[in-house]
Design a protein around this nucleic acid. Sequence first.
DNA 1: CAATTTTCATAACATCAAGTTATGTTACGT
DNA 2: ACGTAACATAACTTGATGTTATGAAAATTG
Lengths: 315, 315
Amino acid sequence: MKIDPRHLEILAAIVDGGGLTEGAEAIGRAQPSVSRTIAMLEARIGAPLFEKSRRPLVPTELCIALAGEGRRILAAGNTASAIVTTFRTGHRGMVRIGGTPVFMDGVISTLIAEFQQNRQIRIEQCYGYAQDLMDKLDAGTLDVAICPMNPAAVSSRFQFVPVLPGRNVIACGSHHPLLRKGSLRLADIAPYPWIAPPASSPLYDDMRHILRDIGVTDTRISFSGGTLASITAILANSEALTVLPYSVVFMARRQRIVSALSIRIGHPERMLGILTKDPESDNPTVRRFRRFIDTEFRNLSRFIQQHEQNILWRD
Amino acid sequence: MKIDPRHLEILAAIVDGGGLTEGAEAIGRAQPSVSRTIAMLEARIGAPLFEKSRRPLVPTELCIALAGEGRRILAAGNTASAIVTTFRTGHRGMVRIGGTPVFMDGVISTLIAEFQQNRQIRIEQCYGYAQDLMDKLDAGTLDVAICPMNPAAVSSRFQFVPVLPGRNVIACGSHHPLLRKGSLRLADIAPYPWIAPPASSPLYDDMRHILRDIGVTDTRISFSGGTLASITAILANSEALTVLPYSVVFMARRQRIVSALSIRIGHPERMLGILTKDPESDNPTVRRFRRFIDTEFRNLSRFIQQHEQNILWRD
DNA sequence: CAATTTTCATAACATCAAGTTATGTTACGT
DNA sequence: ACGTAACATAACTTGATGTTATGAAAATTG
């Protein structure tokens, strides 16, 4: 005998409320409605649920047992409602994000940890470069991409919200001898080996341009192919140099492991930004994540600007 | 946002079954029905529950969370069904029974314990004599009465199922000197004191008749007003005599504390039986209890008859 | 004890979710 | 690319649930 779970809910409400009227109110219905529902339930079960002709309604043993189950159903329904609410307010759910490796490791991961505070949100992260990320957004396997792009060159199928200029710096270990030098010249830099980003990454191109600009010719590559963790470790324990996004070095400044050389280098025409396919159709969690990233980056941008004013950039 | 618990059940069934078709079958509906239900649910919630355009249906994070609650609801519903089933088969519920004190204590209580084996049944017992019990049956505060009555004199408003002749015996402690005597005469019995049943009980009248029949004139009452437990204790620790229903002494024979004198006494025209108001309208538990009492008493009756054949009754 | 109030039951009707069968679509495997 | 299996849609029927209005009965109160 299958019983409608809503009927059990009503039963629980009546037993707990102490009467038909209270139960009806508790569950948001009119009294006659629940009265008839109970009558039908009794007919189906074939046994009375309340003692007849008693005014403060007295539940049967059977009724009390069933009301117990009804209470469970009520509880499950409430938590289900809560789940939906937390989901709709973006406090629960999943966000699939992708971005360039160094940037995800060096900046985004820190923000993610903060975003997950007080929320039950799962982040599925993947790494990739611009084209890759756009393909995934198209395929619907990614909600948000965070990557450097030329805002003018973004397809109209995507929304691109720029948040930071895509500036790079020459990074080194915080113990590096060049940091103690007053002014840097080509001859000073030339002797040191370089860590190369992956050949397919934009950073790699950036580095090539920078080296050409400052006149370094035969670059000695001492390490390549590592993610940020490896790069940081190498920088910390050698005198190698590399090119990293300023924001990454900025975020890492707290650990006092890596620093940036005070040398002005040309920076690309790209902006770091949030790339999405159809911002309106995203679920609340994704929206909230985008908003969060956006505001955090604007804060970061301000910090970086303040920081830059305290540094003398030399040629 | 209130969610229909049945929808959550369906969700759970789909997630567990791995597809719409399986889920629909599990819950006993046609596939299009659940398809539309899910569509409506998604519309209400405002978020997809399954990933679109994927053929082995892939549930969303949100969906999995909600399905968890649905599973609870399903479980509660199942136990509710089980409760109803056990109730309908008489394995659960409550029976309100009443009867004459000595008889309830001496016979019925033992049977109740056996009846409750493997069942979740609450017994509400009360004591009373015939008129009292009929009033309570009339008032609907009693399901079954078990008492001695003259079958011919039972009102047609009641059903009376006789189960045992209302025979009495003279009871004594099992150490009693009279038990060692060959044949008993009035002079043998006369010296001993008597325990009197409550004045309002049928047993009291029985005792008076018996004493008159066997010629005892000035009866010495040593104890009165006690229930069976007290009477038994007095019998065990004195040489007092009393009148008890044969069935009570029979049930007590195991403890070897009380015995019956082998003296034939007149017995009343009453039958012990099961008295009910409206046997058809009773719930399954009560019916089952009546059936149980009936068959147990028939067994008891056979035992008693076999037992009697092994005893020489003297005048 | 009668009057009043409270509480539950019933009636009559409207509405909407949910059931059905029949029939597309569409993703996936061969 | 083609067939199959699985899901979606359509059109219609049914039945539970909602409503208001009202009746009946028990409990309370003066």
